[in-house]
Structure formats: C-alpha cells, structure tokens
C-alpha cells in the first residue's frame, strides 16, 4: 500500500496527473492513425514494391520487420532509462508529481520494449536459418547481448510486480533500468568490437546506406510505423496505469463523466 501524502502536495499531483492523462487521451488516436497509415504503406512497399534480393530472394524482406523491431528494442530502453533517471532526479528535487509520472511512463514502455526485443530475436532467427544456416549461435555477441536485453525487460517487469509499495517499486525499477543501460552500447557496438556472424552496420549517419534507395526509404517508413505504434500503445498503457494507480484520487472523477442511464 502506498503511504498517504500531505493534502496540498496531493492536490498538485492531481493536477499534473489529470493534465498528463488528458494529453495521452488526445495524442493516442493521432499516433494510431499515423501507425496505421505508415504501417500499411511500409508493408505494401516491403512486400510488393521493393525488388527481391539477387542472392537471398524474398527472404531478405525480413529486414523490413527485423530492423525496425531491433531499433525499437534499443530506443524504447533508452526512453525508459531517460524517464527512470528523470523520475529519480525529480524525487531528489522533491518534485513528487513529476517523479511519479516519469516512473509510470517508464513502466508503460517496458512491455512494448520486451515485445520488440522478442520480435527482434524471432525475426533474426528466421533470417539466420536461410542466410547463415543456423537459427542461433551462442558465441555471437550481438545475438547474446540482445537476449540479455530481453532478460532485462523481463527483470524490470517482474521487479515492478514483486514490490507492493509503488514508490519503493519505482525506485528499485529505476535503479535496475539505469544499471541495464550499460548493455545498450554493447549491443550497438558488438558488431564492431567482436567478430560476429551478424552483419555489420548497413546504415550509419556518416556513410550512404549499403542498400538500394527504395529499400532504404521503405525501411525508414517501417521504422516510423513501429515508432508510432510504440507511442500509441505506450501512452494507452500510461493512461491505464495512471487510472489504476491513482483510482482513489480526485482527478479521475472530474476527467471521466458519469455514464447516462
């Protein structure tokens, strides 16, 4: 059970929670629309417009699913770590409303991050079998570090549900999230630091992409669709968690009108 707060502090938290919940309610439909349009366009281009690869045939189209999933698995973790760090920092400055909302946002991102990490491993295995002749190898640093990321997400989700007091859970989860941040550069630089079965960078900021322009733009469209999907589901989950966590506070009564009849 959460310990009660002084009345004045509680009122300020109510205002911030209400503003955050209203923002999520307004933004979510727009993100769903953007995700639907870019997703349909990206998938159409990936499956029908881009020509098959000379060596790998149609199997190469897996990169339009694998790369967005992998990028999102890293990007979501970075966002989670940002919100976790901001939550701890705000608590230090005694901005408890900001701290609470930051931790709720951080925990709202975790399941989607875990989903994309699983999808990255799954689509990677389905790419590996026809291309490298194996589903999985334990000596490849990129593959193993991505698996560790999945365990990190699972650990963060489990830790949150294992601690009863939400404020203690916030702190513990934020610390674990920040510790796990060390894995992100390991995943990104693994193909440069070690010899891996996984291919090197196809896209960097310093060089032109090592793929046809049509494939490159299709890939970016698929990444955008996954980012919009992430924003939509994370903000939906954020709203749900806020209602669940602060259900007894005053603000949901003002925000959600009574049903008629």
């Amino acid at each position: 059970m959460e310990t009660p707060l002084p009345e004045k502090l509680s009122a300020s938290m109510d205002e911030k929670s209400l503003a955050a919940w209203r923002f999520a309610e307004k933004a979510v439909p727009r993100f769903w629309q953007a995700a639907a349009f870019s997703g349909v366009g990206g998938l159409y281009a990936a499956f029908f417009a881009v020509l098959p690869d000379a060596r790998h045939g149609n199997v190469f189209r897996i990169i339009f699913l694998h790369v967005p999933a992998s990028w999102m698995s890293l990007f979501i973790y970075l966002c989670m770590a940002f919100w976790a760090g901001w939550g701890l920092f705000s608590a230090k400055r005694e901005c408890f409303a900001d701290s609470r909302l930051s931790h709720v946002m951080s925990s709202a991102l975790a399941p989607t991050g875990a989903l994309f990490t699983f999808l990255s491993l799954w689509t990677g295995a389905l790419w590996g079998k026809p291309s490298w002749g194996t589903w999985w190898v334990w000596w490849d640093a990129r593959l193993v570090s991505e698996l560790i990321l999945l365990f990190m997400y699972a650990g963060i989700i489990s830790l949150r549900s294992a601690v009863d007091d939400p404020r203690r859970a916030d702190k513990a989860v934020a610390l674990l999230t920040l510790v796990g941040l060390v894995n992100i550069p390991v995943i990104y630089f693994s193909v440069r630091w070690w010899t891996t079965l996984h291919q090197g960078y196809s896209i960097t900021l310093t060089r032109p992409p090592a793929m046809a322009p049509a494939a490159f733009w299709t890939l970016l469209l698929c990444v955008f669709a996954c980012a919009m999907y992430t924003a939509a589901v994370s903000l939906t989950r954020f709203g749900n968690l806020l209602l669940e966590r602060e259900g007894m506070a005053g603000w949901p009564r003002g925000a959600i009108p009574a049903e008629n009849g």
Binding site: N58, V59, R61, I62, L126, W127, K129
Partner: peptide, 8 residues
Amino acid sequence: QDIYLLGA
C-alpha cells in the same frame, strides 16, 4: 524459403 518471411 518464403515460409521464413511469412513466419516472421
């Protein structure tokens, strides 16, 4: 090999 793409 399209089965891998469909599976993904």
